[in-house]
Computed example of a mutant assay.
Amino acid sequence: MTREVRAFAITVLALAVLGLPAGLLWSALSPRPPYQVIERTPTLADPSTQALIAADGWFATVTGALGLACGTLAWFLSRRVQLPVLLGLALGGAAGAFAAFWAGTTFTVGVVAVEAAAAPGVAFLPGPLTLTAKGVLVSWPLLATGVFGFLEGMHGYRESPLRRPHPPAGTTAPPPGPTPPG
């Protein structure tokens, strides 16, 4: 029982901690939407900007790639305690995604300059990094558990006795094991 609890806890903690550098990477890669100050209030300069959608895409890309890598690595390392590790991937992936969201929105990494077309003399500021599609928060746990399940399914299929051909009708199947020399 302690081996299962330890495998679950290590998986959750590892993925949650991995969320912090993932959030910093997301912050470095994502463009910032342009804001302009109108009467001391920051206002989105271009409501049709693609920077908001690009931030969601970069978050899904960074956390999705980590989900695939974590799920694959976890499958190879967890041959004896698969269920706790699978549950740890789900919970740890969610915790890692929220940690990445927090780190990316809290710390600004990379270029913060923005460009927009406007009248001369109008100053633009980089806007805050945020997610407009909150559904991308599940990309990490979804892909981690999905690739883990896929690999386990492929391994189970390869090792399945159902893959062996059936003997012809009216004959009995030889017992499994080595064939006698003959």
Rank of each mutant, 00 (worst) to 15 (best):
Q36K: 11
V37G: 02
V37N: 10
V37E: 15
V37D: 14
V37K: 11
I38T: 10
I38H: 05
I38S: 11
I38L: 15
I38V: 15
E39H: 14
E39A: 15
E39N: 15
E39Q: 15
R40G: 12
R40D: 15
R40M: 15
R40E: 15
T41R: 13
T41P: 02
T41C: 02
P42S: 03
P42H: 07
P42C: 06
P42G: 07
P42A: 10
T43A: 12
T43L: 13
T43S: 12
T43G: 02
T43Y: 07
L44G: 04
L44D: 13
L44F: 09
L44V: 08
L44H: 08
A45M: 12
A45K: 06
D46R: 01
P47F: 05
P47S: 06
S48M: 09
S48V: 06
S48W: 00
S48A: 13
T49I: 03
T49C: 07
T49V: 07
T49N: 08
Q50H: 05
Q50L: 08
A51D: 13
A51S: 14
A51N: 10
A51L: 12
L52S: 00
L52C: 00
L52Y: 02
L52D: 04
L52E: 10
I53N: 06
I53A: 10
I53W: 09
I53P: 00
A54C: 00
A54L: 13
A54E: 13
A55L: 01
A55S: 14
A55I: 00
A55D: 05
A55G: 02
A55R: 10
A55W: 03
D56Y: 06
D56S: 03
D56K: 01
D56Q: 01
G57P: 00
G57K: 01
G57E: 01
W58N: 12
F59Q: 05
F59H: 04
F59E: 03
F59P: 05
A60Y: 03
A60P: 02
A60G: 14
A60S: 10
T61S: 06
T61V: 04
T61N: 02
T61R: 10
T61D: 03
T61W: 09
V62K: 01
V62R: 01
V62L: 04
V62M: 02
T63G: 03
T63F: 03
G64P: 00
G64L: 01
G64A: 03
G64S: 02
G64T: 00
A65Y: 07
A65W: 09
